[in-house]
Design a protein around this nucleic acid. Structure first.
Length: 565
RNA sequence: GCGUUCGUAGCUCAGCUGGAUAGAGCACUCGCCUUCUAAGCGAGCGGUCUCAGGUUCGAAUCCUGACGGACGUACCA
């Protein structure tokens, strides 16, 4: 339900009645309980524009707002409008929520095609922690858009086409000579060995460079080796995605090499548009307000990632028909994307109404605030980090309840992975993120465990309730009223999160919801014998809707719930 | 040097695009289990929103400058 829109509409109608047309009406949550449920602060601005007294306008508005949704309207201070939502109306809406399938959230009537470009690992090495944020944030956004009814196209822009591959293929051939590919099981070590040889041995380095040319000119044997290599590397990624519970599949892969054939025509298009200039032998686009140009073709004729990115935009525009393209990539590349986006629009490679967005995120730091590394300064493999998360989660729950080993392990997987994801998604993505095991695996505060615990508590009650759930929600206490308001605000929150591409909007909502639920739970007995049947049913319904909302919210974030914890 | 970005409680972070007395968690101090999971709930402590100006009825939020940090800065991605 688009809760705030309903209220905004009421205000709009009232404005209409008193003959004023405001710019945009947006009520906000009341900042204090005394102010009711929602407040509208826009009267002051409107009054100023018209040169009228804000209080007069506010009073006029208040007189013209009617309907069973609102129980009380107050004008406070210089012209704040405080809105109280009617308890009965709220109760009936929560009852509707209870009886609906998708929490009364309607799919968009005119779905947009949204391309989400995320994860994008380099095939030369195994995935490391540097890929974690893009993968998690991108996946949650894709889920979110999809849930709201958009047409989502996931794109995994893997790095499979670059100078390192000559080196790797040369080494692969030299060491293996057609033999098995077993050693590739540890890609990281393989890369290091190849790199060492490349640095130490001039002949080998020369050979590696020849291989780059060979691959790019379509040498059959080399391409076969290359393909084999990519397949194995991609399987590593799939293993990580599976462990992480990420929705990406091999079908979503559009590698750099995929755009290879398009590159000459992209350059041509840029030439025709008149944007291209040659500087020091390289083909460049000089951007407004930027000293450094965007280089699209090297002086030796080779292409760069700017070229591939432009080709990808063209593909997404021409073939995928995207309305919005989200690049979930490290914030350090913001200038690169600004240049690429500007060029794509200016040259006509992409329609002017397509929204190109860099969904930037900050660096992952360790507890002491330094970039996340192993003890000896190396990169941390993502798979190792995920395994550690499960082990730590298992340790956290092992001596708590009487779980069997199997139960404990499957719980640990859900809890550990959930914790890693939640802690990442719960902070504003643009700031740097401090990775802290203890904090993320805590039951206190804004963590996945706290949400999962609340969910499990509700499930426990629902399991014990053996009667039929027949009746409606009747809101008694203030806390129930507040809980209802929260439950009905879910769609507003999801739409805002989708609009701004900010998953942390969802986590903070869930945290608020769960906090309120916990308070409700503490002070409102449900199953106790002295609770009247209608109250019991009402509270069961509230709890059920709360559970579904928690589950759905976490599901969008890619996090599972458990019935027992 | 130039550019981007950030600076909110001891620590980790919110703050809904300018609203009323700036909020959480951790840490610290108290209180609450013969009742649905106490892995919980409640109360207290803790602030010159880096600093200085400006815009206006009103600024953590917008504009300018300073200071401090992170990142980027032409043929890697």
């Amino acid at each position: 339900m688009k809760f705030k829109s309903l209220i905004n509409d009421k205000l709009q109608a009232a404005f209409c009645k008193i003959g004023i047309t405001p710019d945009m009406i947006a009520v906000s949550d009341a900042s204090k309980p005394e102010f009711g449920d929602f407040q509208y602060n826009g009267v002051m601005a409107v009054a100023k524009k018209l040169g009228r007294n804000p209080r007069d306008i506010a009073l006029l508005l208040a007189d013209n707002i009617h309907g069973d949704m609102i129980s009380k309207i107050e004008v406070a201070g210089p012209g704040f409008i405080n809105i109280h939502i009617d308890k009965e109306w709220l109760g009936s809406k929560v009852t509707e929520l209870f009886n609906s399938k998708d929490l009364t959230i309607e799919k968009n009537q005119n779905p947009k095609t949204i391309v989400v470009d995320y994860s994008g690992p380099n095939m030369a090495k195994e995935m490391h922690v540097g890929h974690l944020r893009s993968t998690i944030i991108g996946d949650s956004l894709a889920n979110l858009f999809e849930f709201l009814g958009e047409r989502v196209i996931r794109q995994n822009h893997i790095g499979d086409w670059g100078t390192q591959f000559g080196m790797l293929i040369a080494y692969l051939e030299e060491v293996h000579q057609n033999s098995s590919f077993d050693e590739l099981k540890n890609l990281e070590d393989f890369y290091k060995l190849a790199k060492k040889k490349f640095d130490d041995n001039l002949d080998f380095a020369k050979k590696a460079r020849e291989y780059v040319v060979k691959i790019q000119s379509g040498d059959k044997h080399c391409l076969e080796l290359w393909k084999k290599f990519i397949d194995i590397s991609l399987s590593h990624c799939d293993e990580v995605y599976k462990k992480l519970g990420v929705t990406l599949t091999k079908e979503d892969v559009r590698a750099e090499s995929f755009y290879n054939d398009m590159l000459p025509s992209v350059i041509e298009k840029l030439e025709l548009s008149g944007l291209l200039q040659i500087s020091d032998g390289a083909k460049c686009i000089f951007l407004p307000n930027s000293e450094v140009p965007l280089i699209v073709q090297k002086s030796d004729g080779g292409y760069l990632y700017a070229s591939t990115d432009l080709a990808a935009i063209k593909y997404r525009n021409d073939v995928l028909k995207a309305d919005r393209i989200c690049y979930v990539v490290d914030a350090r590349q913001s200038e690169h994307f600004a240049g690429v986006f500007w060029t794509a629009k200016e040259s006509g490679l992409c329609n002017s109404d397509v929204v190109l967005e860099h969904i930037a995120f900050g660096t992952m730091m360790d507890k002491s605030g330094k970039p996340f590394k192993t003890r000896d300064g190396g990169t941390v493999k993502l798979i190792d980090l995920l395994d550690e998360a499960v082990i730590r989660a298992e340790g956290a729950i092992k001596d708590r309840a009487n779980f069997s080993n199997d139960e404990a392990l499957s719980l640990a997987k859900i809890i550990g992975i959930g914790a890693v994801k939640y802690s990442d998604l719960s902070i504003n993505r643009e700031s740097n993120y401090i990775f802290d095991w203890d904090k993320m695996l805590s039951f206190d505060g804004n963590t996945s465990l706290y949400m999962q615990y609340a969910y499990a508590r509700i499930q426990s009650i629902l399991k014990k309730f053996d009667g039929e759930i027949f009746g409606s929600v009747e809101l008694g206490s203030d806390i129930e009223h507040k809980l209802a308001i929260m439950l009905l605000s879910f769609e507003d929150i999801l739409r805002r999160a989708a609009n701004d591409a900010t998953p942390h909007t969802i986590t903070s909502y869930l945290y608020d919801l769960v906090t309120i639920f916990m308070r409700f739970y503490e002070q409102s007995p449900i199953l106790r014998d002295d609770v009247p049947y209608n109250v019991k049913v009402s509270r069961i319904m509230l709890s059920t809707v709360a559970a579904r909302t928690i589950k759905k919210g976490l599901e969008i974030l890619g996090i599972e719930v458990v019935d027992r914890l």
